[in-house]
């Protein structure tokens, strides 16, 4: 099938329009963060740096960012370990119920977040009688972060085959030595990509978090939701949003570099 010149132009135009629509709201947020209007009228009536100054002094926002980072770091580390273990088990072994286990891993993202949220809320409060805290948020986040690590690692395991590991075993490498010197180095970039996604997922999650966070726990999304409808806080939310998008360029750049170096290695 040859794609004709006309079809190429049409497809390219559609792609351009879709991308413009994707970025329009983000650009509106950027411009509104400098607007003198508190109710986000368009076009902006005036220009000001005031919100940017206030945002960096907002103790609530800074504290929330710290909480979110703590939750995301711990959730990412735990899901990296659990995700790698289950990928190895599912990819390298055949056993009874393997399909069920792989369905079990993807279930937390296949089911709507509110289900995970209310199920865990109910389990913690009604069944176990545990107080909601930062720990319950982390436990909840790990549950749906495992799958992002799993997806990346199992795809890598499929591609890399077992020949190098067998060679290592033939040369006398024990299981641990083989994992440390042969398997892990090949998995490293997949782990980084999965870990980055898990971190981003946890950092941005609001629905499950609302149901599992105790009263004193304010992650960044919870803070944003609490301040979204307050006239004096909404422009500060805009500033935080812009900063987050700008900061997110770093992990995307890192992820792309990893993807690029993988291609070179092949």
């Amino acid at each position: 099938m040859r794609v004709s010149r006309t079809s190429r132009t049409v497809l390219g135009t559609i792609t351009g329009i879709i991308l413009a629509t994707i970025y329009l709201p983000l650009i509106v947020v950027l411009i509104n963060s400098f607007s003198t209007s508190k109710s986000l009228t368009w076009p902006p009536p005036g220009f000001t740096f005031a919100w940017w100054g206030k945002a960096f002094q907002s103790a609530g926002a800074l504290g929330a960012i710290l909480t979110s980072v703590q939750v995301a770091v711990v959730a990412t580390i735990v899901s990296l370990v659990l995700g790698t273990l289950i990928s190895l088990a599912l990819q390298r072994y055949t056993f009874f119920g393997r399909d069920t286990v792989s369905l079990l891993v993807i279930l937390p993202i296949a089911l709507p977040g509110i289900i995970t949220g209310i199920a865990l809320n109910n389990a913690f409060r009604t069944i176990l009688g545990i107080q909601l805290s930062i720990l319950t948020v982390i436990i909840a986040h790990v549950t749906f972060c495992i799958v992002t690590v799993f997806n990346n690692v199992i795809a890598r395991l499929r591609r890399m085959g077992t020949s190098l590991e067998e060679a290592s075993a033939d040369l006398g490498g024990g299981l641990w030595t083989t994992f440390r010197l042969v398997t892990f180095p090949q998995l490293r970039s997949a782990l980084l990509a999965g870990g980055l996604l898990a971190f981003a997922l946890s950092f941005d999650e609001i629905i499950v978090t609302t149901f599992t966070a105790g009263t004193g726990v304010t992650t960044l999304p919870i803070w944003i939701l609490n301040n979204l409808f307050r006239p004096n806080q909404a422009p500060i939310v805009n500033v935080i949003a812009v900063v987050l998008v700008l900061v997110s360029i770093i992990p995307i750049y890192v992820a792309q570099r990893i993807a690029g170096s993988d291609v070179v290695q092949k």
């Binding site: 329009l24 983000l26 009228t41 368009w42 609001i206 997110s248």
Partner: peptide
């Protein structure tokens, strides 16, 4: 395509609130 995924879900929904408002863009 990936970049907007890293922008907060809430902020994107809120951006649409200001895009769709009666005196919005």
């Amino acid at each position: 395509i990936l970049m907007p995924l890293w922008a907060s879900y809430l902020v994107k929904a809120y951006a649409w609130r200001s895009v769709l408002s009666n005196d919005g863009i």
